[in-house]
Design a protein around this nucleic acid. Structure first.
Lengths: 345, 345
DNA sequence: GCCATTATTGTAAGCGCTTACAATTAAGCT
DNA sequence: AGCTTAATTGTAAGCGCTTACAATAATGGC
């Protein structure tokens, strides 16, 4: 095609097809009330001219940009990248693009990123979790941007959500260990500040222990950033406690990996000497030796459902305010009764 | 501020400040030739009205959208999500957003995704690898969109690149094993179709073996999709060969993890019975038992450099056509001389 | 066969900003 | 002071599309 010539515009297509610009636009947008004949004529003209509509002009005139924004703490965490991956794939089916912004767990940065995304004109947005600044809500309200939160299941009129209960499975994990006979626990948690998921999981652990009348002293809860290395370091710290815990509950699988690796290095046998649990169920968790007992977070499912629901909201359809998916405990090989050291009768 | 009222526009700011719309626009865009006094007046008006510029109008008028597109095979692979993560962080510093599209290793889908991104008006784009359809290049040329490829280091006038040599480190890995005394090799490769990185790595393996006068029969190269499970299955297949390979070269770390897990399950000791290598150096690789010998792909560095370079290109600055980073072999615990079975003299 | 409806198509006014160009003012010389 | 040149500011014409509304053509009922 004539590549030196000026870009072909919608009006060129209109001229070529011998129709008005409005008709071309209607064909482009699959609007109703377009005759078969006209549509064919326009489509032929589009093909012959190799016409590609200009998204920016379209966005300005129609007030929708054809993209949503996703604000995530980081993509450097497989559960989020898996979620984003499935979200993007699903959005594609709705002819919707994805704008990504990360905020390194800083809620202030989240607000700033949201502001620029809204400025870009996003048609909707999805946030992770339930912890956000009031300014975030204010932005959504003021600019009337449809939004959704995910990865949690709090009931909150301000925050429509698609996620799962983080506390209950954590509690179940702890209960399971209690049932196995464990009485001394250690916890490796991610920082809970601005991270309701980490907080909920920790709360779940605590609740189970309290119900069983067990104590979880402050020095038995080690808080570290996300990372294998960090998990290993936290593990070492817990192993210095005397008497040692017989079970360690980790806030996520990666921390658990770190703990497992450190345990192996220290010659501590899992699960005989010590039980360990994770949370997320990353692909490699079932391949660890022994396979990690954890909670399966439905990452891909969340991504798909967010896409479906947010697109519906943007269209103006009614959607459930809160959708709760299942996060199931997966019992595997890292949990067992405390063998070497039975409870004093 | 008055939230029921119509949105504040640039002309409202102009009226408030008692200046022309052009001046407001100049202040907004940090254009030169604006007096201190005028700037202050306009900024005060912006603040008092709580004005937020409209990105779509801006995009239409200025022909730049303030976002680039990234086309990646999948985010469900830590090396890519790490790269995207650092890319996005760096772009933020340039006040540039990121549009993501995945194509599941289908080059046809890559073209389609690129088309829609260009339609959106992206200011630039980055692709993974060197394998692309001619239509991809045609799109960039026709729409005059600055672009970059990464994750490879091919010299090619059509494709500016930022990446690393995939073949040489693969060759070094194989040479290392040969030096250790290995003579019978197995390879677990990702599908090479449309994936130059996988192809280059395989070629690197082959080259080292051929140079050493060793044969790599077709049934000693197992091609599987990305995944731990897939790696484990491929491993099982290679172990059915008689005589067994004494070393297995894997196209990436995840396949190597699968192989290692399968080996453990089969009671095959690494590295005594068998050596294994990976490629990528994921965070957990050094924590495996034994720690995985692999090649460190500079994911984060690629992301940063792509951001810097692409932004420079968009500005019209001259940038190197090809930038090669180092991908270093990391010798760790999964490689050792073939112990149990010495070569017949 | 005529008129009220309804389905199609066209006209043209924006969407909210940027920027070429013109107009004005300030600064620098002699 | 008078002129040239540069710095600042304003004017207004788009950017390429969508869509309310008007105009026209087609349809159906009686």
């Amino acid at each position: 095609m004539n590549r030196d010539a000026k870009r072909t515009l919608l009006q060129d297509v209109a001229r070529e097809a011998g129709v008005s610009t409005a008709s071309v636009s209607r064909v482009l947008n699959r609007a109703p009330h377009v005759s078969e004949r006209l549509r064919n004529r326009v489509e032929a003209a589009i093909d012959s001219l190799g016409y590609v509509p200009d998204g920016t002009a379209r966005a300005l005139a129609s007030r929708r940009i054809g993209a949503i924004g996703a604000l995530v703490p980081t993509l450097d965490n497989p559960v989020f990248s898996a979620m984003i991956d499935s979200l993007e794939q699903r959005l594609k089916q709705y002819d919707c693009r994805l704008l990504i912004a990360t905020y390194r767990y800083s809620l202030d940065e989240e607000v700033e990123s949201l502001r620029t995304l809204i400025q870009q004109g996003i048609d909707g947005a999805v946030l992770i979790g339930h912890d956000h600044l009031p300014a975030t809500l204010e932005l959504f309200r003021r600019h009337e941007v449809p939004y959704l939160t995910c990865w949690h299941s709090e009931e909150d009129p301000d925050w429509p959500s698609i996620g799962f209960d983080n506390a209950a499975p954590a509690r179940h994990l702890a209960e399971h260990l209690i049932d196995l006979g464990h009485r001394r626990f250690g916890v490796i948690s991610a920082p809970v500040d601005g991270n309701d998921r980490a907080r909920a999981r920790l709360a779940g652990f605590r609740q189970a222990l309290e119900t069983a009348g067990l104590d979880l002293a402050d020095d038995h809860v080690v808080t570290v950033e996300y990372g294998i290395e960090e998990g290993a370091a936290a593990f070492a710290e817990l192993m210095r406690l005397m008497p040692r815990p017989t079970a360690i509950l980790c806030g996520n699988d990666v921390l658990a990996f770190g703990a497992m690796f450190a345990a192996a290095q220290a010659g501590i046998a899992i699960p005989d000497d010590l039980s360990i649990t994770g949370f997320d169920d990353l692909p490699q968790s079932r391949f660890m030796h022994p396979a990690l007992t954890t909670v399966a977070a439905p990452s891909a499912e969340v991504g798909r459902l967010v896409a479906d629901t947010l697109v519906a909201r943007i269209r103006g359809d009614q959607t459930p305010h809160r959708q709760v998916l299942e996060a199931r405990v997966v019992l595997r090989g890292t949990t067992a009764p405390p063998l070497h050291e039975m409870e004093p009768a």
